[in-house]
């Protein structure tokens, strides 16, 4: 079942393109990573899905409900952590959570659990919070009523590594409960750790949409090799690069062919690695450029 579905979703700010022809879906129970550098259109996509921006054309549905007509109903089941998190400074953390609870009309079933994970001074005014504390409060308010889907825009910004780890563990626990999460980020290691599927957005258009493992395996392996002979003598692929005496290339072929080829030389050092998400990301950006 698709929880989020967009068909040719397009948003223009006057003449300026925000996003164009975005077609993708997010399935129930998956953690979907939405990748792209700053200005690529991640936030525009999120803000259009949540009804902050009026789409120029296309369609978008959340739980099968059209974002144009049923956005208030949709928000009953959606939590949101904005990228640029700004919270009422004059309220205390408790007052903010009470206010938001009163607007949601649901039992805050995860509130106690979240407050145990993210220890924040609830009685203190938010203007006295550090960036990390504000981020924790943002996470708590998004998840406190256990919504079916949480849309997050750079959610770990400002969190220390220990809290980030606790947050990832919490997301994994939510996933076991078949909750859906849409994670927009440019921190590739984060997406690599927790996402099932990713979409890569570039200049407002979707350039890749794939399962993380499939994408990695499709991308092949990175091979780095140092031989006693002159590197130029090595019969590698056309796009082979030589850098500081290292021969570098990428292969999607059977690795056995290359191991046999290496045996014809005197190997000083050899490094064979899977593609990291970062490599894939850079590959997509360089390729399209």
């Amino acid at each position: 079942m698709n929880v989020i579905e967009t068909k040719n979703l397009t948003k223009y700010y006057g003449e300026v393109k925000g996003v164009e022809n975005l077609t993708f879906s997010v399935k129930k129970g998956e953690i979907f990573g939405f990748l792209g550098p700053n200005g690529a259109g991640k936030t525009t996509t999120i803000r259009t899905l949540l009804g902050y921006l009026n789409k120029t054309s296309g369609e978008a549905y959340i739980f099968g409900k059209n974002i144009d007509d049923e956005i208030v109903d949709i928000k009953k089941e959606v939590g949101y952590i904005p990228g640029d998190l700004n919270i009422y400074g004059h309220l205390t953390g408790k007052q903010l959570l009470d206010f938001f609870s009163s607007l949601r009309h649901r039992e805050m079933i995860l509130l106690d659990e979240l407050l145990k994970i993210f220890n924040i001074p609830l009685e203190r005014k938010i203007k006295g919070y550090s960036k990390g504390m504000k981020q924790m409060l943002g996470i708590i308010q998004a998840f406190m009523d256990d919504p079916e889907i949480v849309i997050m825009d750079e959610p770990t910004s400002g969190l220390d590594p220990l809290l980030q780890q606790k947050f990832y563990d919490f997301l994994r626990k939510q996933k076991t409960k078949r909750k859906t999460m849409f994670l927009s980020s440019h921190i590739l290691s984060e997406v690599d750790k927790i996402c099932d599927r990713i979409g890569i957005i570039k200049e407002g258009e979707l350039v890749a949409l794939e399962n993380v493992d499939t994408l990695k395996s499709k991308s092949g392996k990175k091979i780095k090799l140092k031989i006693k002979e002159k590197p130029e003598k090595f019969k590698g692929p056309k796009d082979m690069k030589i850098h500081d005496g290292w021969i570098e290339f990428v292969t999607t072929d059977n690795i056995d062919i290359w191991i046999k080829e290496f045996s014809k030389y005197t190997i000083i050092d050899l490094d064979i690695n899977d593609f990291s998400l970062e490599d894939i990301f850079i590959h997509y950006y360089e390729m399209k450029s």
Binding site: G51, Y80, L85, N86, A142
Partner: peptide, 10 residues
């Protein structure tokens, strides 16, 4: 920019 979080409520 407080409206961002506020309007995430139904």
């Amino acid at each position: 920019k407080t409206i961002d979080l506020f309007m995430s409520n139904p």
